[in-house]
């Protein structure tokens, strides 16, 4: 690869040139130390992309088998029909044994290969067990600079929902009728409450209606026991029914997404910044544990530090690397 100019590269990404977007994603995935300067420069160039500030980052998550890929495909198609462009990051787990992964989301998606306004990238979690991929946050920034809407699709109930809050403006939890697990989580207040709940595979009216009303009850219980504190009190989580295979409910989902995006307008920048701070801290503490956090002055201090440095142009990844180096140095000094 010939050395490239980050400014030119960024311009091409912002023009949604697919080859350039792909190269930029390859770069942010690159874990070699010598690549990091390039990553930081590129992301700094993309920071004020016109699309990024006005765009919408949608996180789509839920247990395996609820039809998230098919729903993502239907959603992307309908958003395209409304004249907006879409970038998708589909995240699948890496095998713990081999480090490899099977990224199968494309198999469930149908798309027009000549469409310049739709871009799909699959990422493997690459060792970040149960969470989003290492490069997910950076990949979202790249796509957000190029496309109107970015959809982050990820599997799982638990860790990845908490992660997805860090990168998405709107979190959509997808479940299917009759999946009791999610209800239990909600009732127990374990799970952060998503911004939108979708009951997919609502092909059978009766079952879907029951699922919707069950969820409504569970949400009330969850609120009553004080779950989801820290959530937006001015937003009442809507519950929608979709059938991705039959294409029903998709337009309502887009309308609801738009409503939420509008609702966020004033607070969006702050929400995104908080997400990045949290992402940085998560990355660091996963790597170095509590000892790492306390060595560098404890959680509150690290948080303040992250807020300051991220404002100064660092990315969660580059800042985490920097903190890691500081930790290692500090370890050397400790007797």
């Amino acid at each position: 690869m010939p050395p490239s100019d980050p400014h030119d590269d960024a311009q091409q990404v912002m023009a949604a040139n697919k080859a350039a977007v792909s190269r930029a994603l390859n770069l942010v995935e690159d874990r070699r130390p010598e690549a990091q300067t390039g990553v930081t420069k590129l992301l700094a160039e993309l920071k004020d992309a016109p699309k990024a500030a006005g765009g919408h980052r949608v996180g789509l998550t839920g247990p395996p088998g609820v039809g998230k890929s098919t729903l993502t495909s239907a959603l992307a198609r309908s958003v395209r029909q409304r004249g907006r462009t879409v970038g998708v990051v589909a995240i699948d787990p890496s095998s713990i044994r081999s480090g490899g992964s099977l990224l199968g989301d494309r198999a469930r998606m149908s798309f027009d290969p000549s469409d310049e306004g739709l871009f799909v990238r699959s990422l493997a979690t690459a060792g970040v067990v149960g969470g989003l991929a290492y490069a997910a946050n950076s990949a979202v920034r790249v796509l957000a600079a190029a496309y109107d809407m970015v959809v982050i699709e990820t599997t799982g109930v638990g860790q990845s929902e908490i992660d997805i809050v860090h990168v998405a403006d709107t979190v959509v939890l997808v479940i299917q009728p009759g999946s009791g697990d999610v209800l239990q989580f909600l009732k127990a207040g374990i799970m952060e409450i998503p911004d939108i709940l979708v009951v997919n595979k609502a092909d059978h009216d009766e079952l879907a209606q029951r699922a919707v009303s069950d969820l409504r009850g569970a949400l009330q219980t969850a609120h009553a026991v004080g779950a989801g504190s820290g959530q937006d009190v001015n937003w009442e989580t809507p519950i929608l029914a979709t059938s991705a295979t039959q294409g029903t409910g998709i337009e309502e989902l887009i309308d609801t997404l738009d409503e939420h995006r509008q609702h966020l307008d004033a607070t969006l920048a702050g929400r995104r910044r908080q997400g990045e701070v949290q992402w940085t801290l998560d990355l660091f503490s996963r790597k170095h544990g509590e000892h790492g956090v306390s060595t560098l002055g404890g959680l509150a201090q690290l948080k303040a530090r992250a807020e300051r440095d991220l404002d100064g142009g660092q990315t969660p990844l580059s800042l985490c690397e920097r903190l890691s180096r500081e930790y290692v140095t500090a370890l050397g000094k400790t007797p």
Binding site: V21, N26, L103, P113, S114, R121
Partner: peptide, 23 residues
């Protein structure tokens, strides 16, 4: 390997688009 599997019945255009987008 990280493996992107596209399923059956894809056109040459789709394969090339996937190769490009997926890097």
């Amino acid at each position: 390997f990280d493996v992107v599997y596209e399923g059956i019945r894809v056109s040459p255009e789709q394969i090339v688009a996937s190769a490009l987008e997926e890097g």
